[in-house]
Nucleic acid binder design. Structure first.
Lengths: 213, 213, 213, 213
DNA sequence: CATGAATGAGCTTTCATTCAT
DNA sequence: CATGAATGAAAGCTCATTCAT
C-alpha cells in the first residue's frame, strides 16, 4: 500500500528536478534574465507544471538558494565531525568553504541578488525562516569550534557568536568580491590561498600564545 | 561671460540630482524592480531627460554605485591622512567603513546586485574600468597601512595586497550579511562592534608581539 | 483521436486571423504607423499572443506581403491554365493583374514600403527567400507565355526573361503610380484600361506581323 | 539696399543645405530610421533650426522627394530639347531615366515610402500640389513626344496621355523592382538594358510600319 | 496532475516637437 | 534667428501567471 508514499517520493523527485534545472539556468543567466520558461525547457516540463510546485518565480529561485545553503552546511558538518583541535579545524573549515565556492559558485553569484528586499517580500515567511534557520546552523558550526577553542584554553576569551559571524562574513565577502572580479573581467585571485590566509590571520588573532608566526 | 560654464555647472548639478534620485529608488526597490520611471518621478524630470544624461538604465544605476565607491574612498583617505601608527589606523579604518555603512547602506544593498553579470555586460568598458580603478584605490589605502606596519616591524611579514583584500572582503561581507539580516527581518547585530572586533582580531593576528589579549 | 491535428488546425487558423487583421491595419495606416497594438485590437487577441506567432513586427507584416504574392500567383496560374494563344494570354494576364489590383490593393500599397532596406534587414532569411521564390514563380508564368509565343513564331525573337521582367515592372509601376494618385487625391485613372493598353502595346511590339493597329 | 534680398538668398541657401543633408541621411537610413537629429547633425545646425524651415519631419523629407522630381524633369527636358524624331527620342528618354536611376536611386528608394497615406496626410496641400504638378510636367514631356509621333504619322493613333502614363509606370516599376532586388540581396539586372528594351518594345508597338524586328 | 496557449501589465527606449534663453 | 535641453507620448517586446482542456 505504498502507493501514497511512492507518489510523495515522485513528487519530491520532480520538485528536486525543477530546482536542479533552475539552478543551472540561474547560473547561466542570472536571476533577472532567467525566466520560468528557461527552467521549464530545461527540466522538460510544461511551464504550468512549475507553478504546481512553486507559487512564484521568487519561491522557485529561492529554493535554489536554500539548496546551496544545504550544501555548505553539509560540508561544514562533515568537517566538524573530524577529530581535530579547534585551530586545525579552522583551517579545514576555510578549505570546506573553498570547496563550496568552487562547486557552488552559482549560489554565491546569485545570493546577493536573491536576498534583495523586493524578492524577499515575495516569498512566504516559511521560506525566509528556513533560510534563517539554515544560515544559523552554518554559523553554529563555526561557533562551536570557537567555543571549544576557548573552553580548551587555546583561544582568548571572545564572544564565539561574534567570531562566528566574522568568519562567516569574511568567507562570504571574499567569495563575493572574487565573483565581482570575474564580472569586472579582472584576473581572479587564488581564492583558496586567500581564504586560508584569512582564516589563519583570524586564528592567529584568536590564539592565546604565539611565538612568531 | 561664463555662460558656458554656468550651463556646464547646471548640467553637472542635474546629473547629480538624477544620480541622487536613482540612489534613493535603488535602495528602496532594488535594481530589477526599480524603473527609470521611478527615478524620473523622484527627480521630477521627464523620463526622456534621464536618457539625455545616461545611455541606459544600467549606466544610470552603475553611476550610483560609483558614487558610493567615491564616498568610501573619501572616508578611507581622510582617515589615512591622520597621524597614527598602523595598528591604531586599522581601528579607525574599521570605524570609517562603519560610517560608510551607516550613511550609504543603500550602496551596499545594491552593490552585489549591480555587479551581476548581465548588468555588467550592458555598461561601457569605461564604466567598469572606473569601478575597477576606484575599488583598487580603496584597497590601496588598506595595503599602504599594512605595508607601513610591516616596514615598522609592528606587523609580521605578510603579503600586504592579500591582507588588504582580506580586510576588504571582511568589510563587504559583514555589511552584506547585515543587510541580509535586515531583509530577513532578523534583528540587526551591532555592526559597529562587529566591524571593530573583526578588525581587532585581524590586527591581533598581524601584530608581531602580543601579551595576553 | 485527432486532438493534435485539431490543435494544429486551430493554430493555423489563428495565425491566418492575425495576418488578415494585419493586412487591414497595414492598408489603413502603412507600415511605419501601423502598430502591433492596432493588429491585436483588430483581431481581438492580446498583444503578447501576436508575438507567439510572429517574432517581430517586421515578420508579421512581411507575412501579409507574402500572402499577397500568393494571391497574385494564384490568379496568374489560373489564367495560364486556360487554352489560349500567347497573344490572347497576355490580354488575360493584364486582366488578372487588374483583378489582383482591385482585390488586393492593400498589398500593392504596402509592397514597396515593406521591401525597404531597414525592414528587410530585420526579417529572417527564410522569409526573404520565400519572397524571392514566389516573385520568381510569378515572373515565370509571364516568361512561359513569352517563350511559347516565340516558339510558335508569333513573337519576335526576344529574351523571354527580360520581357517577363518588363511586364512585371510595368504592372507594378502602373499599380504603384495609381496608388500614388490616390494618396495625392488626384482622380484615379481607369486602371483596367491602362493595364490592358499597356499590355496591348507591348504585345504589338512583340508580334512578328502586324497589319495596322 | 539688397539686404532683404541677401537675407532671402541666405535663407534659401540654408533651406537647400538642409534638404541636401536630409537627402543624404534619407538614402543612408531610410525614412523610418532617419531622424531629425540625423539631419541636424549632418547640416551642423541645431535641431530647432530645422523646424524654422520645415513644419514637420514629413515636410522636410517630402522636399527631398520634390528635389528628386526636379532632377528627373531637368534630365527629361534636356533630352526633349534635342532635335530628334519621336522614335529616337524615346530611346533617349529611356537613357535619361536610367541616368536618373543611377544618380538618384535614393529618391526611388524612398519614393514609395514617402508617398504613403499616413505621410501624405501630414504634409500641407501646397506640397502635394507641387508634387502633382511636377509629376505632371514630367509626364507631359513624354506625352509631347508621343503626340508628335502621332502627328508626324510615325505612331499609330493612341491616347498620348495614356501612353505617357504607361511609359512613366514602366520606368518607375522597373526601377522599383530593381531596388527591391537589391534589398532582397538578389543580383541586380542590367537596368540600362532593361529600360532600353522596354522602351524599344513599346516603341515597336507604337510604330505604324514595321519590317521584321 | 499536466499542459501550454493566452494574457496584459509593464518595461526600456526613441524621437518629433516645443520653448525659454 | 538660432539654440538644444526638456518633454512625454508612443512603440516594440517580455514574461510571470492563469486556466480551460
Amino acid at each position: 500500500m505504498g502507493v501514497i508514499e511512492r507518489k510523495e517520493r515522485e513528487k519530491q523527485k520532480r520538485r528536486q528536478d525543477i530546482v536542479d534545472a533552475a539552478c543551472e539556468v540561474l547560473s547561466e543567466k542570472g536571476f533577472a534574465t532567467a525566466t520560468v520558461d528557461d527552467v521549464s525547457n530545461r527540466v522538460e516540463l510544461a511551464k504550468g507544471t512549475i507553478y504546481l510546485y512553486f507559487k512564484t518565480k521568487e519561491e522557485l529561485f529561492m529554493s535554489v538558494f536554500i539548496k546551496g545553503l544545504d550544501n555548505l552546511l553539509d560540508k561544514y558538518r562533515e568537517t566538524a565531525n573530524l577529530d581535530l583541535n579547534p585551530a586545525d579545524m579552522l583551517d579545514r573549515l576555510a578549505l570546506s568553504f573553498y570547496r563550496y565556492y568552487k562547486e557552488d559558485i552559482n549560489y554565491i553569484k546569485t545570493a546577493a541578488y536573491l536576498l534583495h528586499e523586493d524578492i524577499m517580500e515575495k516569498i512566504p515567511p516559511e521560506l525566509s525562516n528556513e533560510i534563517n534557520h539554515k544560515a544559523g546552523m552554518t554559523q553554529k558550526v563555526l561557533r562551536d569550534v570557537i567555543q571549544k577553542g576557548i573552553d580548551q584554553g587555546d583561544f582568548i576569551d571572545v564572544d564565539p557568536r561574534q567570531v562566528a559571524r566574522i568568519l562567516w562574513g569574511l568567507s562570504i565577502g571574499i567569495a563575493q568580491t572574487m565573483v565581482m572580479r570575474i564580472h569586472l573581467n579582472v584576473p581572479e585571485d587564488d581564492v583558496r590561498e586567500l581564504l586560508v590566509s584569512a582564516f589563519n590571520l583570524v586564528k592567529r588573532g584568536l590564539l592565546r600564545n604565539q611565538s612568531g608566526i
